[in-house]
Simulated scan of single mutants.
Amino acid sequence: MSGEIPPAQPPPDPPHHELVHPLSLWRWRHNPLYRCTDRLQARIALALLMLVPILGLAATFAVGDAAHRHYRAAAEHQRQSLRLTTAALTHDAPDHPEPGSAEARENRYPATVRFTDPSGRTRTAETDVLPGLNAGSSVHLWVDADGAIAEPPMTAAQIRSRTMGWALVAFLTVAFAGATAYRCATVVLRRRNLAEWDTEWAETAPRWTRSP
């Protein structure tokens, strides 16, 4: 009686340390134990190891330059459209629990101020001020053409920080895209290996069964 064909078992994957070690990738070309798909996977990994840093740096400089020009133009527009004016507190600002401390110099408290907008009208609004200021104290604030309180124009340090942030995002995006491409290639090649293994096993297994 002929035995049943045992289910095919996929061969073990190559050791992971060889997949990620750049110097070992070249040995795969002459290793008879590796399949064509294994060699292809090694070449894809090597190509990505070479391309991702280059493309990442190119994207970093390109995006960083574009971001720097954008924020520099935005800061220039803010300086031209905003106006620095002086306002007076309408009541005392809350005091900090530790007057004179480093935290007190950094903290701000909301307070109502009175100022004259660009059209000459007297207005009141709420803005953040240093703690402990008395009513009538003068504070400087930026207002737009409509008289609304606005954030001050971006400083050089803020422009540099935002530019570096976008440059870092660009590099990480390229790195993530490279890792995703390698993962997708690995999945496709593994499915192909399993399909080929099933085909070869279906042809080989009958020769291993014996009749009494």
Results as ranks from 00 to 15, higher is better:
Phe115Arg: 02
Thr155Trp: 01
Cys184Gly: 01
Val169Asp: 10
Arg114Glu: 15
Gly165Met: 12
Trp197Leu: 11
Trp142Ala: 09
Gly178Pro: 01
Glu103Leu: 11
Glu98Arg: 15
Pro99His: 07
Thr180Cys: 14
Ala104Thr: 07
Arg108Cys: 12
Ala156Asn: 08
Ser101Gln: 05
Arg192Val: 02
Ala179Gln: 09
Trp197Asn: 10
Trp166Cys: 09
Met154Gly: 05
Arg191Asp: 01
Tyr182Pro: 00
Ala175His: 03
Phe171His: 02
Leu168Met: 12
Pro152Arg: 13
Ala181Arg: 06
Thr163Ile: 07
Ser101Gly: 12
Thr155Lys: 06
Gln158Asp: 09
Trp142Tyr: 12
Ala157Arg: 05
Thr186His: 07
Asp117Arg: 00
Arg183Pro: 07
Ala175Met: 13
Ala170Pro: 04
Leu189Thr: 00
Thr180Gln: 02
Glu151Val: 15
Leu168Phe: 11
Met154Lys: 07
Ala157Glu: 07
Gly178Arg: 05
Thr163Gly: 11
Ser101Val: 10
Arg108Val: 12
Ile149Ser: 04
Arg190Phe: 00
Phe171Gln: 00
Ala175Asp: 00
Asp117His: 03
Asn193Asp: 11
Ile159His: 05
Glu103Ser: 15
Leu133Asn: 02
Arg190His: 02
Val139Ile: 15
Gly147Arg: 00
Leu133Phe: 09
Asn134Arg: 13
Ala135Cys: 10
Ala177Phe: 07
Val139Trp: 08
Asp144Leu: 10
Arg183Glu: 05
Ala157Asn: 04
Val187Gln: 01
Arg121Glu: 12
Val187Asp: 01
Gly178Met: 02
Gly100Asp: 03
Glu196Pro: 00
Glu196Ala: 15
Asp144Lys: 00
Pro97Asn: 06
Gln158Phe: 06
Ser137Ile: 13
Thr186Arg: 05
Gly136Ile: 09
Val113Tyr: 04
Phe171Thr: 08
Thr112Asn: 07
Ser138Gln: 14
Val187Phe: 01
Asn107Ile: 15
Ala135Gly: 14
Val129Ser: 02
Ala185Ile: 01
Met154Val: 01
Thr186Lys: 09
Phe115Thr: 10
Pro152Phe: 13
Gly147Asp: 10
Thr186Leu: 04
Ala145Asn: 07
Thr124Gln: 12
Ala177Leu: 14
Ala111Lys: 03
Ala135His: 04
Ala156Lys: 01
Met154Arg: 15
Gly178Ser: 03
Ala111Ile: 06
Ser137Asp: 13
Ile159Met: 08
Ile149Glu: 03
Trp197Asp: 08
Ala175Gly: 06
Ala156Pro: 01
Glu106Phe: 10
Pro99Tyr: 07
Arg123Val: 15
Asp144Arg: 01
Thr122Ser: 09
Pro97Arg: 13
Ile149Cys: 04
Ala167His: 00
Thr112Val: 11
Leu168Glu: 06
Ser138Arg: 12
Gly147Cys: 06
Ala111Trp: 08
Glu151Tyr: 10
Arg114Gly: 07
Leu133Val: 08
His96Val: 14
Trp197Phe: 06
Pro97His: 05
Thr173Val: 12
Thr186Pro: 00
Ala181Met: 09
Ala150Asn: 05
Gly120Ala: 11
Gly100Leu: 06
Glu98Gln: 14
Ala148Tyr: 06
Pro131Ile: 05
Val139Gly: 05
Thr116His: 03
Arg160His: 11
Leu133Ser: 04
Asp128Tyr: 13
Arg114Phe: 07
